[in-house]
């Protein structure tokens, strides 16, 4: 690794900075929720209540992460059901 490419290591060494427990937990939780959502959507598009049933996670947390995944192009909306819920599917590739 060139010197230019290791500035994060230099910063860590220089200032003794460590990732905080809270930030590690944030990362762990978002990974856990997003992996569960991805897994639930593998067998076809689902609404938030359907994902909640499949994963056991709360609907608001699922929806928040789903919309974040939508921003980053991981999921996209499909058609809406009669109760007013969109189904979401994984973006191919």
């Amino acid at each position: 690794m060139s010197e230019r490419r290791s500035t994060v290591v230099q910063l860590r060494n220089r200032s003794g900075l460590k990732p905080s427990k809270e930030n590690v937990e944030l990362m762990r939780r978002s990974k856990e929720v997003q992996t569960a959502i991805t897994k639930a959507l593998k067998d076809g598009p689902k609404t938030v209540p359907e994902i909640a049933k499949a994963t056991g996670l709360s609907k608001d947390e699922i929806f928040w992460h789903l919309m974040t995944m939508h921003k980053y192009g991981v999921v996209e909306p499909d058609e809406k059901d009669e109760a007013g819920y969109f189904r979401y599917r994984l973006v191919e590739g």
Partner: peptide, 12 residues
């Protein structure tokens, strides 16, 4: 969001 939806569960 992809539409106007409510934050608790994504319902329109």
């Amino acid at each position: 969001f992809n539409a106007v939806l409510r934050p608790s569960d994504g319902k329109e």
